[in-house]
Amino acid sequence: MVIYGVALLAFSSLLGLVLGDWLGALIGVKANVGGVGFSMILLISLTAWLTKRGWFQPLSASGVVFWSGMYIPIVVAMAAQQNVLAAIKGGPLAFLAGAIGVVLSFALVPLIARIGRPKRPEEK
């Protein structure tokens, strides 16, 4: 049934977020640390385990796949409720503080991506 997939997804999400809150409290930080990440690992492991035993049928999977397909529209709805006005009102200081960091972060990505990537023969 479709609800099995939705329920499994909701269960993984909840448990992961709780773990993230705990980890945050544990290291004394007022934020969720890794919650969505834990939820994802839970979902991947649970569905793999259940599928191997034949307990996770395609119809159940469609309950997960639907929500994964809703992701982009949900992100668009999220964009539509950002405080764009405050970002613009922050003036040049806020703009530069945000923008310069983004540019440098983007520039770092290809550099850090070299670590741990399987080396090609032409690289030493």
Partner: peptide, 23 residues
């Protein structure tokens, strides 16, 4: 729109995208 794009459904659908990702 606030509910649709709020934290709850955002996290929920983001977690769903992990289905099929490679461990």
């Amino acid at each position: 729109i606030g509910l649709l794009g709020g934290n709850m459904l955002r996290d929920f659908s983001i977690v769903a995208t992990a289905y099929g990702a490679s461990f």
